[in-house]
Amino acid sequence: MSTVELISPLTDAERNEIEAEVAHLPDRESAAIDALMIVQKHRGWISDESLRAIAKFLDMSAATLDGIATFYNLIHRQPVGRNVVMVCDSVSCYVMGADSFAQKLQDHLGIKFGETTRDDCFTLLPIVCLGACDRAPTMLINEDLFGPVTEDELTEIFSRYS
């Protein structure tokens, strides 16, 4: 029986980056998380097709790799917008009013946590403590850390991202 598998092949850049990780690990499977993060960096998220391609490249089963992918918070198995906004919901930020900040933020973007704006610009996700508790409440947009953020700054901050 031959089943046609949907695989979207890895790009050369992705392959090279993954191989660079594999090179200093005892076996290919050990690079599973690195590979997921690398491909996600290029594609924004890990589709089923991407996952199959990575699994194949690392000589492991798609099931095992997906078991790994679904364990980690930072690996997106669903499409995300061009920018990912992560808002800290842990205790220090909570003490500093994160809950009401989060509410205002949702109102501002017009989406709830877990959703993406209609123009695909922002996906809003909760995140645990960002390790910047002296700057609570905090938020991370892609690789940029903000804190303390107030409601008034939101328009300006979001305008930096397209």
């Binding site: 089923d48 089963s61 099931a63 095992t64 997906d66 078991g67 679904t70």
Partner: peptide, 25 residues
């Protein structure tokens, strides 16, 4: 399935109170 019998197409997915045991598809 995996460790004792060497299968590769059954896995544990997810974490916390939402663990799923099945195939990739």
């Amino acid at each position: 399935y995996d460790e004792y019998a060497g299968g590769t197409d059954l896995a544990a997915f997810g974490s916390r109170g939402r663990m799923y045991f099945g195939r990739f598809e």
